[in-house]
Design a protein around this nucleic acid. Structure first.
Length: 883
DNA sequence: TCAATCACG
DNA sequence: ACGTACGTGATTGAG
């Protein structure tokens, strides 16, 4: 039986380009789109074993669609050169693979595919169409299924007519009616303005087609009727544009697209030329033993563990390679635990959570909690927390593939197991959303489906480890991973479980004060404005300020007037209401985010807030904090700073102790730039902003006034962020020229810094990434972009990331050392929070003296730099007092 | 779900 | 000439 795969080449390469991490070969040629396309292709070939394969491309700038509508695909961004350069590479590779490529002047890839599917339908051949374009769903039929890429390119979701019916309630041929009504911004197909997918579907479910909708507009009412009537012609035209032409004069036969397996010699050479090493390995691998075959075996052998066969797991515990804990819920402290899978080399054990929590499973629980028994898995940090709140302890994490994936490419947002499997060319894992559904539709599937899904996950985790291990090794990141991030992961979990006690009465009292202030301000604002409106709506506020009161427009946003604090400051002199609005914003923020928000997050079990530090999101290597975010508790303004009083020790008589690094980023800069002046400043522990002012303005430090110091401080910030004259001018409210002069003067004095900035950008352009002192990497695919904005952004990031990232490395090191020091000394003190350059502890009184010395000393010696690190410690009865 | 705003380092 | 400071998360309104 023939099986055909027809690929929409333009659509897939376009998506691959935007979805894939940066990748350039040694000659600087970007290859990410080709790489993404190829991994997807290999996956398809493996999974479907097609007899025929063809890739279609668009040809010619003008197609027959332009004849009726010149603006077709108008307004579309030009294809970036980084992408268009990759077309020839892809075509060459397909040639080497022995895969047919069709293109025909005046037609798009869709039309070629549409024509072939029509012929296939007629001759009873089975086809899978692969594209990123939903329009192509119109081609689905008894013989034709359409695979849509999702999130990246390697995941393909397959639609048969039944699945289209289920998803949209439409027949395939109605997809064009859908487009007719809703249009498509990316192709500049207008549709009917104001009609999106929801409305369009409602209309189609009722009337069936564009023509029928238009014939029954008398049954509609209000705005909708008006819109549809005025844009009837647009809808007809849009439908026509969305219709794939299926009679392209294509002079080809099925024999022209026969696929005879990869011509490995040529294919190998082509892959080698592109420097796709992992794909090369994968091909030779799958030629011999086939990792997917191994996995199929393992997955086939899943034991669903019950009370009566528990013994089998117990016997296998020594051989367990991988632990996978399936949880549900974003907040790991509140997540459910669905089930666990323990994977050995030859079989998998699926353990429903109820069994895990039962009396009978004691031996498994003690295995899980034994730190000597090493575990490997995906997001073990989350597993640890979720299990903890269900009475099951977890210890001994040795390798976390999510964490490794993050270190290997921290900007890859898709660190799901599905994404990692795709990226490493492993057998695909169905996305969780697909298996469980999401939001209200979430439902744990039948046990056999669940067991199979989780077993696949465990198998993929197992296969990921050696690849990641090797890459970590190649990138010299093993110490960072095993010595820093893995140990830190456990420490974070301990901090989070501990939580921070909140004084609820105090918090509520603050809330009451804010509430009164808000009521007063709102009244006053309504009176001054002469009208009541929703103060929280920037849109309504803008209308009042600019239309009604006629204040000058300072700045606009994409959607209308800007009303942010910077704008309001400028408007304050014009009208008394403005100052009140600023005050309202300040208090309303405190109330909604910090009083109400914090109250919601207090655990009824512990009376504390248990934040979750995310270790795999920030591109620079910093942590982030969620549920609640305890890294942005107010401090700058006294009104907000009072909130810190509610964070108190969890035991009577204990104290809050906080220690923060002084100027860590500029000290790091002094080290990595080896700038003489900057080093000298820190070696003598000078006030860095005053010193900068004195050097830049060429005056004695004693004569630096507040204004000069303020400017110097802004320049220092700018330097750390990757300076631009425009940014500095905005910050200091000066002209770009003046800012530019400042920067020049700065660089004349701090020549080492100038050298660093030049070098790091050059390195980034050469390597495609930058790294921190501890070898943490960040790829910068846009560093060589031809688009000025993209490139400039990447250049600033190249300057900033090693600084911010190294600072993150240092405090993480300090945390690991601190944890070690506290347990060696058997201290009862606990580390509670990390706020980028600050660590917060709760300490018993009798440990205060010890901790006052220990914390700063460990922080200062975390890493030896060319300049000293400095940490300042303070303490009090709550976080506010620890200042 | 996105955009605007604002809290922190 | 181009037009932005680096990194996060939470809340709100509006489509």
């Amino acid at each position: 039986m023939d099986k055909l795969i027809l690929i929409d080449g333009n659509s897939i390469i376009y998506r691959a380009f935007f979805a894939m991490p940066p990748l350039t070969n040694s000659s600087g040629q970007q290859t990410n789109a080709v790489y993404g396309f190829t991994t997807m292709l290999l996956r398809l070939l493996e999974e479907h074993k097609p007899t025929h394969v063809m890739v279609a491309f668009d040809a010619g700038k003008v197609t027959f669609r332009h004849e009726g509508y010149q603006d077709y695909k108008g307004g579309r961004e030009k294809t970036p050169p980084e992408l268009s350069q990759q077309f020839p590479l892809l075509k060459e590779l397909l040639e080497a693979f022995g895969i047919a490529q069709f293109e025909l002047e005046g037609y798009e890839a869709d039309d070629i595919i549409g024509t072939l599917t029509k012929r296939a339908d007629e001759s009873g051949r089975n086809v899978i169409v692969v594209t990123g374009d939903k329009d192509m769903l119109q081609l689905a039929s008894g013989h034709v299924t359409v695979g849509l890429t999702r999130k990246g390119v390697t995941e393909v979701e397959v639609y048969s007519p039944a699945e289209i019916q289920e998803r949209y309630g439409l027949k395939p041929e109605q997809i064009i009616d859908l487009k007719g009504l809703m249009g498509d911004a990316s192709d500049n197909i207008p549709g009917i303005p104001g009609v999106g997918e929801k409305t369009a579907l409602k209309l189609l479910h009722q009337y069936g087609s564009v023509e029928e909708v238009l014939a029954h507009t008398d049954e509609l009412k209000g705005k909708m009727k008006e819109r549809i009537e005025t844009h009837a012609e647009d809808a007809r035209m849009s439908k026509k544009l969305a219709t794939i032409y299926r009679d392209v004069p294509l002079d080809k036969t099925w024999d022209d697209i026969v696929f005879g397996g990869l011509r490995t010699e040529k294919a190998g050479a082509a892959l080698a030329k592109l420097e796709f090493k992992s794909l090369l390995e994968r091909l030779s691998l799958s030629a011999e033993s086939g990792s997917s075959a191994d996995m199929a075996e393992a997955v086939a052998d899943v034991l669903i563990v019950r009370e009566d066969n528990l013994e089998e797991v117990e016997k296998a515990l020594d051989a367990v390679e991988v632990v996978h804990v399936e949880t549900y819920g974003d907040n790991p402290h509140q997540a459910q635990v669905i089930a666990l899978v323990l994977g050995t080399l030859d079989r998998q054990f699926f353990i429903p959570f109820e069994l895990m929590a039962s009396q009978e499973a004691g031996s498994i629980r003690s295995w899980l909690s034994n730190p000597q028994r090493k575990k490997r898995g995906y997001d073990l940090h989350r597993a640890d927390l979720a299990l903890h709140w269900h009475g099951v302890e977890f210890a001994g994490a040795e390798f976390d593939v999510q964490l490794a994936g993050y270190l290997l490419d921290p900007t890859d947002a898709n660190q799901t197991l599905t994404g990692l499997a795709a990226k490493y060319g492993l057998p695909s894992i169905r996305p969780d959303e697909e298996v469980f559904g999401k939001g209200a539709k979430y439902k744990v599937p039948e046990e056999d489906v669940l067991a199979d899904h989780l077993a696949r996950k465990a198998a993929v985790i197992q296969e990921l480890i050696p690849s990641q291990q090797k890459q970590l090794e190649e990138n010299e990141m093993k110490e960072l991973f095993f010595g820093l991030e893995m140990p830190l992961s456990r420490i974070l979990a301990d901090m989070e479980k501990q939580g921070v006690l909140v004084n609820v009465d105090e918090l509520k009292a603050l809330g009451k004060e804010f509430e009164e202030q808000i009521a007063r301000l709102v009244q006053e604002i309504y009176e001054l404005a002469g009208v009541e409106f929703n103060l929280n709506s920037p849109k309504q506020l803008g209308e009042i300020l600019f239309d009604k009161l006629g204040l000058p427009v300072v700045k606009k946003t994409k959607t209308g007037y800007s009303t942010d604090a910077e704008v309001l400051e400028k408007l304050a002199p014009y009208h008394d209401v403005v100052q009140n609005i600023l005050q309202y914003r300040t208090i309303a923020k405190l109330q909604s985010t910090y009083v109400e928000g914090l109250l919601k997050e207090i655990s009824d079990k512990t009376g504390r807030v248990h934040t979750y530090f995310r270790q795999t999101v920030a591109a620079t290597g910093r942590l982030s904090s969620q549920y609640p975010n305890l890294q942005n508790i107010p401090i700058r303004l006294e009104e907000g700073r009072k909130l810190r009083k509610v964070f108190v020790p969890s035991e009577p008589g204990w104290l809050i102790l906080a220690a923060d690094y002084s100027q860590i980023e500029l000290r790091v800069l002094a080290h990595i730039s080896d700038d003489e002046r900057l080093k000298e400043a820190f070696q003598n522990d000078m006030d860095i902003h005053t010193k900068t002012a004195s050097d830049v303005f060429g005056v004695a430090p004693e004569t630096v006034d507040a204004n000069m110091r303020r400017s110097a401080k802004a320049v220092n910030f700018g330097i750390v962020y990757g300076i631009s004259d425009y940014g500095l001018s905005q910050n200091l409210n000066i002209t770009r020229k003046e800012a530019s002069r400042f920067i020049d003067q700065y660089f004349d004095v701090f020549q080492g810094v100038r050298r660093y900035m030049d070098e790091i950008v050059k390195d980034a352009k050469r390597d495609g990434y930058v790294k921190t002192l501890l070898e943490r990497r960040r790829y910068l695919p846009e560093i060589n972009a031809s688009n000025f904005n993209l490139r400039s952004f990447a250049e600033r990031t190249a300057m900033n990331t090693p600084i911010q990232g190294t600072a993150a490395d240092i405090i993480k090191l300090a945390m690991v050392h601190m944890d070690q020091a506290m347990s060696e000394r058997k201290l009862r003190s606990r580390m509670l929070l990390q706020v980028h350059d600050e660590l917060v502890f709760e300490v018993p009184e009798d440990e205060l003296e010890m901790m006052k010395e220990l914390v700063p000393s460990i922080m200062e010696s975390a890493l030896k730099l060319l300049v000293p690190l400095k940490a300042e410690v303070s303490y009090g009865s709550n976080w506010y007092e620890a200042k």
